[in-house]
Design a protein around this nucleic acid. Structure first.
Length: 296
DNA sequence: CATACGTGGCG
DNA sequence: TCGCCAAGTAT
């Protein structure tokens, strides 16, 4: 009863966004009806913290080389890391490899459909569970990525952006905003993400062409500036992350073991020593008598 | 709960 | 130039 008006509002937004997506949604390969759950899974791991444009080519070659979990499971970690290339956060590649092995070992070589089984795979958090469940299996769990969080913050709450990290309130909101119809709910998941990626963007939102420009509470409130806590910028220059990246770039370039001296230009000696140890512990590097190299 | 974790592009 | 941002996860 009290939610009647709100349900009406949601319905109008759903209708507009779903219609927009039908004509404006991108033709991404993992959205094709014949794409396997494994293809969806790989796309979701690659897309974590990474612009979609950057993963298109790597996804294609990855799926050509390792079309099933068993194919990837049979590869060496070094080959997997080399194929990951410069996508960033290479532990995602290590986790993807380990997840493929787990699928072979425990799930008959398939991407598991059960959300709890998905969540148990390395590198799979709340977002990826919902994304794979919804996009690969048609099980409409509420997908709450950075796009949906921003879209809901603006349209439903009237704020310019979401909190630094997902809150309980946002999870409840996302669940409440899922359409009742199963097929619509799955479409809403991808369509609201797409709206955030193409129109309701963080930097310069395209409100003039937005399908819900007359409904959005942020816009109708006059685009008020964000008043909440901002997330601290990450920084990169001079961090361990940068030095790790330089070290990995060296060992990724060729198969030959690298003597310790090769890493001298990366940072001061103590720091390089510390990071080499950390990289080995992370499974991203190996050390043999001949030198340092990607895991074999 | 705050922080570490790669990389590149855009305003 | 440089800060911000990009389909997050693990600790």
């Amino acid at each position: 009863m009290s939610g009647g008006a709100e349900a009406e509002f949601r319905g109008r937004v759903h209708t507009a966004v779903l219609a927009w997506y039908a004509v404006a949604g991108r033709d991404l390969p993992w959205r094709h009806p014949d794409c396997s759950p494994w293809g969806v899974y790989v796309s979701e791991i690659m897309a974590q913290q990474t612009p979609i444009a950057r993963i298109l080519a790597p996804w294609q070659s990855w799926m050509g080389r390792w079309p099933t979990p068993a194919d990837l499971a049979a590869a060496s970690r070094g080959d997997v890391l080399r194929a990951w290339g410069r996508l960033g956060y290479p532990r995602r590649a290590v986790n993807l490899h380990a997840a493929a092995k787990a699928m072979v070992e425990h799930h008959a070589g398939q991407v598991p459909e059960d959300p709890a089984a998905l969540r148990a795979l390395p590198g799979v958090g709340d977002y990826t569970v919902a994304a794979v469940a919804s996009f690969a299996f048609g099980n409409p769990l509420p997908v709450l990525d950075t796009n949906v969080r921003r879209v809901l913050a603006r349209i439903a709450i009237g704020e310019a952006q979401a909190a630094p990290t997902p809150t309980r309130g946002e999870r409840d909101l996302a669940a409440a905003w899922l359409p009742d119809d199963c097929a619509d709910a799955n479409r809403w998941n991808v369509a609201s993400m797409e709206l955030g990626a193409l129109v309701c963007t963080a930097r310069t939102p395209q409100c003039a062409t937005c399908p819900v420009r007359d409904l959005c509470r942020w816009r109708t409130a006059g685009h008020p500036a964000y008043a909440g806590v901002r997330k601290r910028p990450q920084g990169y220059a001079g961090t361990d992350r940068e030095v790790r990246g330089r070290i990995l770039a060296l060992v990724r370039d060729d198969d030959a073991p690298h003597p310790r001296a090769d890493f001298d230009p990366c940072a001061d000696q103590a720091r390089v020593d510390k990071l080499l140890i950390a990289l080995i512990a992370d499974g991203l590097l190996e050390h043999s008598r001949d030198g340092y190299h990607l895991p074999r």
